[in-house]
Design a protein around this nucleic acid. Structure first.
Lengths: 163, 163
DNA sequence: ATTCATGCAAATTGTTTGCATGCAA
DNA sequence: TTGCATGCAAACAATTTGCATGAAT
């Protein structure tokens, strides 16, 4: 993941001004491995900046995502942001359903071309959801399938069959 | 995919009333393999029902998704709905970036357990995006990576490397 | 006849935009 | 000092809710 300094350096290199808010944003995202909603960010920042406005949060999130220091992902309950990986090789993610931490995995199932040849493949998505070591211990998530946590999209989420 | 009659039968079996609008919804989704936004549905239905209101569309989409006859997926540009697959085995999807048609694929990359053993795996998502045969011919989508079509989430969408 | 579905209006929430002021460079 | 960043207000879009009426059972 990008560090705070890498984030700031990138923004500065692109001609953006390094305001105090943006420093705080860089810190927040570099120290938090999970996904954050605009509201999460607003509430966190609001503790430090009394007159904070939502539109500035949105603007900065947008700017940082355009710059590539943040990644934007749409979840069922809206858009969320996380700091970009700086790994330059192709990789996928394991996402914790409890703390939303994401771990990169280098395994990619997409080595083959489409066996049916029906499709011109452009891109793919492969994500694993579960509970990370920390959250397994903290919350005793040993039952699995507890529906409490959020989850990305509902596509074929209904459990037909094992994994 | 579920047929119109299967959709209606399911709704009826659950005690829902089969109104004319709901019949039309069943027809619309059973005859359309792609994802539809609430607005898409509203506009289509509006042609037939002059006084149609948006909230009824939302209510029916919600009801049908709760019943399991529709699947709801969050895209970058909002929620979309498609008729459920009635295939009961575990499977994944290839989604056309042009017409949004979805084809089931039986290949599942998730046969192995987590090699790093860091994660208690609960579920996973594997989706392939591209252009189906029809759209390749119609639109000459041979270049690939044209950014015109919609695309689900932006997670590791930035193209670093091949597949 | 009962109960649920619908339309209407309004409320809520999420997000964007225009403009004047303030601050980083 | 100059232009971008911010706060404020307002616009806009997506979605939900309360209530009275109408239709399916």
């Amino acid at each position: 993941m990008l560090t705070k300094d890498e984030i700031i350096a990138t923004m500065s290199a692109q001609g953006l001004r390094i305001t105090d808010q943006r420093k705080t944003l860089a810190t927040l995202f570099s120290e938090n491995e999970g996904y954050l909603s605009p509201k999460d960010v607003y509430e966190y920042m609001g503790k430090k900046y009394s007159g904070l406005s939502f539109d500035t949060v949105y603007r900065n999130l947008r700017v940082m995502q355009d710059l590539g220091v943040l990644e934007q992902v749409s979840f069922e309950d809206g858009m969320k942001f996380k700091v970009s990986c700086n790994e330059h090789h192709h990789h996928h993610h394991m996402i914790c359903l409890s703390c939303q931490k994401t771990l990169p995995i280098s395994f990619c199932p997409m080595q083959m071309t489409d066996p049916t040849d029906q499709f011109q493949i452009v891109e793919h998505k492969f994500e694993i959801f579960g509970y990370c070591k920390d959250c397994q211990q903290k919350n005793g998530h040993t039952e699995s399938k507890s529906d409490g946590g959020f989850r990305q999209t509902s596509s074929h989420t209904h459990s037909h069959g094992g994994y």
